[in-house]
Amino acid sequence: MAPRSPAPKISRWRANLAAIPPYVWLLLFFLAPFLIILKISFSEAVIAQPPYSPVLSLSDGVSGLWAAVREFTFANYAFLAEDSLYIRAYLSSLTIAAISTALTLLVGYPIALAMARAPHGWRPLLVALMILPFWTSFLIRVYAWIGILKRDGLLNQVLLWSGLISEPLTILNTNTAVYIGIVYTYLPFMVLPLYAALERQDRALLEAAADLGSPPLLAFWQVTVRLSLPGIVAGCLLVFIPVVGEFVIPNLLGGSSTLMIGQTLWDEFFQNRDWPLASTVAVLLVLVLVVPITLFQRIQSRGGL
């Protein structure tokens, strides 16, 4: 953001001082762990505690560092490239994330639009109602769907009772359940940026388009949708990026055919105890997400959201 008035030099200095504690904290607990994960992704797995080698020891100084660098191995990366399971997991995560982002947008847009066009007095309540589920546990909200989607669950009971189906549907432990879970839990992340973009819009623009002879649907597409584009981009990124690495939803709602990289990393770490391979999976996941994350940061630091 651009500084609105040139701040006095003294206060800028103080603001720099305020930056020190969070800066140091983030360097220690966000950046340093990243460098370690990068380093371990080049290590070999051994059966030991901790289960990788070599451990970087800073006490050896520069020569120790160099010795560690020389022991770097690309074996983990080569392994990931050779085993099609991992490539398929990355591709399938990206596909699932893309489809569910699109679905969330389709479900979220009419809701955000209706919120933005609601009578003025209603809007704060509607926003609060949209935010409230976000405060309740993510895990609980995913769990709630198990009871609904099960074979003898509520959805099947209602559908059977109404006569729409004669056989219970298998929804739980399929990708359909994963999509439902993602749309459900990430809906507020999509709706709120959309609402922020739509609420700012001047309704007179739509009227002007109508006066100039534009049919309502075309005017909606050319004016409303186009002007809400920043909200669409922000919402989509807020859904897409975390969903690519999602673990809880595919684990609880997905089935054996649901392949997602967050789950693969989890299994590599907790079941196979192959920490270097898990680190390699994580490094590649970050690489996959670098472009969307950078885009998100651009929007965010312009004061977005």
Binding site: R12, F30, I241, F247, G262, Q297, S301
Partner: peptide, 30 residues
Amino acid sequence: TRATRLPGRTLFTAMTYAPLVMPEVITGLS
């Protein structure tokens, strides 16, 4: 909002916003 000339400001901004969307498995593992 105020430290417009913070040394390494880009890094600081990036580190503040990245964890918002970083997949939890990566934060946890690292």
